[in-house]
């Protein structure tokens, strides 16, 4: 496995339907707004210690709305 660079998360708001799996699995990285739609906290850059949680969130979003990219 190649793991170069930092992981950056984003949420495709056109897809997010507010299932809140991301917020439940990685509350350090995601937050829900006043209607229950999710957004990433801060810049979306993931500290190394939270990478696993970030990837878990991408794999549990029913709408395929959580994106993770290495940069």
């Amino acid at each position: 496995m190649r793991e170069k660079g930092t992981l950056r998360l984003s949420i495709d708001s056109a897809r997010c339907q507010g299932h809140n799996r991301c917020c439940a699995l990685a509350p350090e990285l995601f937050d829900a707004d006043e209607l229950g739609f999710a957004h990433v906290k801060g810049s979306g850059l993931v500290p190394a210690a939270l990478e696993e949680k970030a990837l878990l969130a991408t794999r549990n979003c029913p709408e395929y709305a959580v994106r993770a990219k290495r940069e």
Partner: peptide, 9 residues
């Protein structure tokens, strides 16, 4: 939208 605020986490 009307209902969503009552059901957020």
């Amino acid at each position: 939208m009307l209902l969503l605020p009552a059901f957020t986490p």
